[in-house]
Design a protein around this nucleic acid. Structure first.
Length: 289
DNA sequence: AATGGTACCAACCGCGGAACC
DNA sequence: CGGTTCCGCGGTTGGTACCAT
């Protein structure tokens, strides 16, 4: 089911991820976040390219990611959103908590794509969608289409409150008695036009305006990404870059990074700028902390 | 039991856009 | 302001599992 591991011409490992690699990536991001995907694998001691790490994290390792069968309600949401937006998988993922765009895309191609059109009609009828800005009802946005619709998509996606989508979701999900409490996330979405948490290093695309809370609605507001997180026994509590600077200023590493503190750059940047052996960084930090 | 076809899904790749220098 | 780097999206592929013959 997964690609066989192999090493490419640059010494980067490709293919299936091992448990050990998963653990390294998970624990590194838990401790330091992911400010820079290109540097992250080196700092985490992984022989992977940054993109591969990002993909693994986004699709498999990040908190609250769901795996397994899609519920009927989730399928209905996907169908409804696909009717409206076309192949905008990230847009759908932002509105299906716990599902990655890749998983939604796969599910669409394998289960939903070839379903009878009548079901799409049912969804559209059951949850009528208001007309979009500058786009007729009967003209679904298609990723292959031209700039006019691309522009339309930008306008739409720049609206933090997308009333029609929320309406669809509320209608679909409220009809389900066994769904895992979607109302909190939806309420949050509809009532807050901009709720990116200060200090969060969870970086999301400006396209869909997903927030940390959108992504992980089951968590209390400001948990994993925004609050100091409790780590395992060999770990420490880190809440922000300023904590990094404090650590450095009082640590042996601080002598390596004398110019670092006032600049408020990332921890990775400071080490890299120093020119030290980045591959030893992970173990150095672990042993130090 | 062996073989071939298909379904499924994790992972890769190319591209465009944003951010940075 | 142009070039470079990085990030994220969406399409595609590789390889295993499962099913039919």
């Amino acid at each position: 089911m997964v690609r066989a591991p192999r090493i490419d011409q640059f010494g980067m490992k490709k293919g299936a991820w091992s448990e050990d690699e998963d653990n390294k990536l998970r624990s590194f991001i838990a401790k330091y976040g992911h400010k820079n995907w290109c540097e992250l694998p080196k700092l985490a001691g992984l022989s992977r390219c940054g993109r591969s790490c990002r993909l693994r994290w986004m699709n498999y390792l990040r908190p609250n990611i769901k795996h397994g069968n899609f519920t009927k309600q989730e399928e209905d949401v996907i169908i409804g959103l696909h009717n409206k937006f076309g192949n905008k998988w990230s847009l759908m993922a932002a509105r299906l908590p716990g599902r990655s765009d890749n998983e939604i895309k796969n599910h669409w191609h394998t289960h939903l794509k070839n379903q009878p059109a009548v079901r799409n009609d049912e969804i559209s009828t059951a949850f009528p969608i208001e007309e979009e800005v500058g786009k007729p009802d009967d003209e679904p946005i298609n990723s292959n289409k031209t700039t006019t619709e691309g522009c339309s998509m930008k306008i739409i996606s720049n609206l933090n409150i997308q009333v029609d989508e929320v309406g669809i979701l509320l209608a679909v999900l409220s009809s389900s008695s066994d769904h895992e409490s979607p109302s909190s996330s939806l309420t949050s979405k509809s009532s807050s036009s901009s709720c990116l948490s200060n200090g969060s290093d969870y970086v999301v695309s400006s396209h869909h305006h997903a927030t940390p809370h959108d992504q992980f609605p089951d968590e209390p507001a400001g948990s994993f990404w925004t609050e100091p997180f409790l780590l395992d026994s060999e770990s420490i509590i880190v809440s922000s870059i300023s904590d990094y600077t404090d650590m450095f200023s009082s640590s042996p590493l601080g002598s390596m990074t004398n110019n670092f503190i006032p600049q408020q750059v990332s921890i990775q940047d400071s080490i890299m700028a120093d020119g030290s052996d980045v591959l030893s960084w992970s173990s150095t930090m672990d042993s130090y902390f």
